[in-house]
Simulated assay, not measured.
Amino acid sequence: MSEQTTAAPPAPPPPGRPAPSPRASRPGARNTLARLGPWPWIGPCVALILLVVVWPVVEMVITSTHKISGLGIDFGFNGAGRYQKLFADPRLGAVMLWTIVWTVLVVGFTMAISLALAQLYNQQFPGRRFTRWALIVPWAASVIVTSIGFRWMLDEVAGVLNRLMIDLGLISSAQNWTGDAAHSKPWLILVAVFVSLPFTTYTLLAGLQTVPGEVYEAARVDGAGKWQTYWRITLPLLRPSFLVALVINLINVFNSFPVIWGMTQGGPNTDTATSTVFMYVLGQTDVGEAAAMSVVNFAVVIVMVLLFLKVSRWNEEN
């Protein structure tokens, strides 16, 4: 009689460890996340960009092709009529010229002063922590509140600047500092630089603090002077932070609205209005023309940034 062998029953799973699920053991279920790739992580970001950026741009372009009154009454499709009206406006040339001058001067002064402040705050000196905190104040306060505060400070009747300058004998009578473009434009630039300094300074300061100390030690050993070290080591290594601060400042200043609106509302007439403020002024009578101005602003920003990135060779690593 031959011996019959019976297969041993499968060993139970060790205590404390659950038995593997049949669903999890299937190759299709195990590779689901692998097939999706990065989409579970970047999908919400893409959806947010489509909702917050792409959809408003599409609506803006559609609106610019319609004739819409300041009360919101849509008179129907108008094609390029709103653009023709915009480019025929005699105020547009002066507004765009002032916008370019405003952007160049504000960004230029902001970058130069912020670079000096970042160098200062990167040094060790008594009270450095408190001075850093003080620099945050213009950033923490609302820009429109800061602008209105400066407007009242410059007021012809109740402004403290006139009172101070009269007491010091600098002027003989009170001046209307925001009453005309010649007086108000320098103050607009000053306030815009004032509110832009904190972000730019801290961006450059963060870049300075990433420069390894060993690089400076090697430069001193090689006999490099302070200016040689600054031009050949500090500035090249600060380039990524400098470019980020510069691009963001270009976009923010070009699109700036609260400073000018809070101080002069673009007046008198539209003498101090940039393209963004001019767009708001147009929207009070013709929404379609304001949308056309928005499309022009958007196109200018895109071209400006692309040209800047090409000239600065953003992706080139030295």
Rank of each mutant, 00 (worst) to 15 (best):
V191K: 02
V191E: 03
V195S: 08
V195H: 08
L197I: 06
P198Y: 04
P198Q: 08
F199N: 01
T201A: 03
T201I: 03
T201V: 03
Y202K: 02
Y202H: 11
Y202M: 15
T203V: 14
L204I: 05
L204D: 00
L204A: 02
L205G: 07
L205Q: 07
A206T: 12
A206L: 07
A206P: 02
L208K: 04
Q209A: 05
Q209V: 03
T210N: 14
T210D: 13
T210Q: 15
V211W: 00
V211C: 00
V211R: 01
V211Y: 00
P212G: 09
P212K: 08
P212N: 06
P212I: 06
G213F: 03
E214S: 13
V215I: 14
Y216S: 12
Y216H: 15
E217M: 01
A218T: 00
A218F: 00
A218D: 00
A219V: 03
R220P: 03
R220Y: 05
R220V: 03
V221F: 08
D222V: 07
D222K: 10
A224E: 10
A224M: 12
G225N: 07
K226F: 11
K226A: 15
W227D: 01
Q228P: 04
T229P: 07
T229E: 15
Y230K: 02
Y230Q: 04
Y230R: 03
W231P: 01
R232N: 09
I233F: 07
I233A: 04
I233L: 11
I233S: 02
T234M: 04
T234V: 11
L235A: 10
L235W: 11
L235F: 10
P236R: 09
P236I: 08
L237I: 00
L237W: 00
L238G: 05
P240Q: 06
P240I: 02
F242D: 01
V244L: 12
A245S: 10
A245K: 02
V247P: 05
V247F: 11
I248G: 04
N249A: 11
L250V: 12
I251H: 05
I251A: 08
N252E: 13
N252T: 14
V253G: 07
N255Y: 04
N255M: 14
S256F: 06
S256R: 12
P258G: 10
V259F: 08
V259Q: 12
W261F: 14
W261K: 07
G262V: 04
T264H: 01
T264D: 01
T264Y: 00
Q265P: 02
Q265A: 13
Q265S: 13
G266M: 06
G267R: 13
P268C: 13
P268M: 15
N269R: 10
T270W: 08
T270C: 02
D271M: 01
D271I: 00
T272N: 00
A273G: 09
T274C: 08
T274W: 08
S275Y: 09
T276H: 03
V277D: 12
V281R: 10
L282H: 12
L282D: 13
G283I: 06
